[in-house]
Structure formats: structure tokens, C-alpha cells
Design a protein around this nucleic acid. Structure first.
Length: 257
DNA sequence: ATGGTAGGAAGCCTA
């Protein structure tokens, strides 16, 4: 059994104690991190390696940043997506570990929709879809996990009318998300829990956590070879309720060996 | 209610 988790930690520096506690409690084999907000040389490698994890990091100053933690060796590490040589944002890292190809994805937020950020998001999604399709040609187990900054359906939002025109809900964003699924990927949580209302993010503002008003924007997308092995997928809300919490909480799945 | 909170940077930007 392989347990693969994804968590937008919103600063690895601030969230290190929370991360170490959670990996100790949940014992994931692989953890995909987003918004580490750390240069690679400043990443707290030793503390994480002391917990038994190998590390692959792809960061930058101030913004973005992704990483892969694994109890198994990490091989074939690569960073970035093809299709835009000018894109310097650290939002994608991929590796093979435990016989599974995994990627940690921090998809652009895209707001405000009227700015250049929205077309950047949509173009980034198209680059991701193209890469995801290429990976399927190898017919191997692939898990593309991360903060997709997309609510796939109204069930994934506490107030769909209020969010309708937001970049996380817009039909253009949802259509590109579905394109990846139509290509052959399975979204683990919704596949196992078709009608369950559950969230992975609650805004710090306006007491959204206390009000139970969240969004489901963190996802695990599985290739057919991985989906055949899918056993469970859950969202662990415990970390969101603790002191100094990230605004996101971990999602994980287990694959049969 | 055009605010509210958090993080990193440096005296605003991103989410």
C-alpha cells in the first residue's frame, strides 16, 4: 500500500512544525507540497529528512514553490512544464517514487479575471493537460496532486452564486479541468465520494473555517493504472483547526501495491 | 459590510 498526500502549506518555514506533526500522525509515504515560498537553499531539508523522507524541491523567492517528500527513493526528477520558455514561476515538480510517477502542482489562482492572470491560468492548464496526456502514453501509474485552484462543481463551494465569476469557478477553468479528466485521469475524491460535500480550503478572512464555509480546490488525479489500484481517498481536516494553520488542509489517497 | 487575515518582502503584493 502506498499513501500519497497533497498539502498547500502556505510557507514551509512557518508550517514546518505542523508538517512534522502531521506526517508523524498520518504516516504518508509521499507528500506533495505547494506554496512552500522558499528558495531551495533555505528549505528545511534536515528536519524533514530526519523524519525518514527523501526530498525534491523547486522553489523561488517569496511566491509559489513546490516539493515532493517520499519515504522511497526519488528518481527521474524534473521541474516546470513545457510550452512557455518565459515562465519562471515554480509551480510544477515531478518524480518517480515507489513505482509511481507523482507530480506536485500549484496551479495559478487566476484572479482578478480581468487581469493578465486569468489567461495565464488558462494557458497553464492547457500546458498541464498536454503534459498529462503525454504521461498517459507510458501506461504507468501516475498521480498528479496539488492545489488546482479549481472547484470542479457547485458541490465543491459553500456559496456557488457568490463565486460564479471567480477564476476558481469560471466555466473556462472548469472546462480545462474536465479536459484532463476526459483525457483519462480520475479525480480520486469525487470518484470515491460522488455526493459528499467536503472542502480542502477555508479562507483566513471572515471566519470561514469557523463558519464551515470552504472550497474543494486540492485534488489527486490518477492515471488509469493508478486508479485501478485506488483504495481510499480522504480529506484530513484536523490540521486546519490547529494553531498557526495553513488555509489548506491535506488530502490523501492510498494505492494497493 | 468593497472589509476581513496571513505570509513574505520591505514599506505592497499575492492569495
Amino acid at each position: 500500500m502506498l499513501k500519497i498526500a497533497s498539502w498547500n502549506v502556505n510557507s514551509i518555514k512557518v508550517r514546518l512544525p505542523a508538517l512534522l506533526r502531521w506526517v508523524s500522525d498520518a504516516a504518508p509515504d509521499v507528500v506533495l507540497l505547494q506554496e512552500t515560498k522558499s528558495l531551495d537553499e533555505a528549505f528545511p531539508r534536515l528536519e524533514i529528512e530526519d523524519c525518514g523522507y527523501n526530498l525534491a524541491v523547486h522553489g523561488q523567492k517569496t511566491y509559489n514553490g513546490v516539493a515532493i517528500l517520499s519515504k522511497r527513493p526519488l528518481e527521474d526528477v524534473s521541474v516546470g512544464l513545457d510550452g512557455d520558455d518565459d515562465d519562471r514561476q515554480a509551480r510544477y515538480i515531478e518524480a518517480v517514487t515507489g513505482g509511481v510517477r507523482v507530480a506536485s502542482i500549484y496551479l495559478p489562482n487566476g484572479n482578478p479575471v480581468a487581469s493578465e492572470k486569468f489567461p495565464y491560468k488558462l494557458a497553464w492548464m492547457e500546458r498541464l493537460a498536454a503534459h498529462a496526456a503525454t504521461l498517459l502514453e507510458h501506461e504507468e501509474a501516475v498521480v498528479l496532486g496539488g492545489d488546482y485552484n479549481v472547484m470542479p462543481a457547485d458541490l465543491d463551494c459553500y456559496d456557488p452564486p457568490a463565486w460564479r465569476d471567480d477564476a476558481l469557478c469560471r466555466t473556462e477553468s472548469r472546462a480545462r479541468f474536465r479536459t484532463i479528466l476526459h483525457g483519462g485521469y480520475v479525480e480520486a475524491f469525487r470518484t470515491l465520494h460522488p455526493h459528499r460535500r467536503a472542502y480542502t480550503f477555508w479562507d483566513y478572512q471572515a471566519g470561514r473555517w469557523q463558519r464551515g464555509e470552504g472550497l474543494r480546490i486540492d485534488h489527486l488525479l490518477l492515471s488509469p493504472e493508478a486508479a485501478d489500484r485506488l483504495e481510499a481517498c480522504e480529506i484530513d481536516t484536523d490540521p486546519r483547526g490547529r494553531e498557526k494553520a495553513s488555509d489548506h488542509t491535506p488530502i490523501w489517497c492510498t494505492l494497493r501495491e
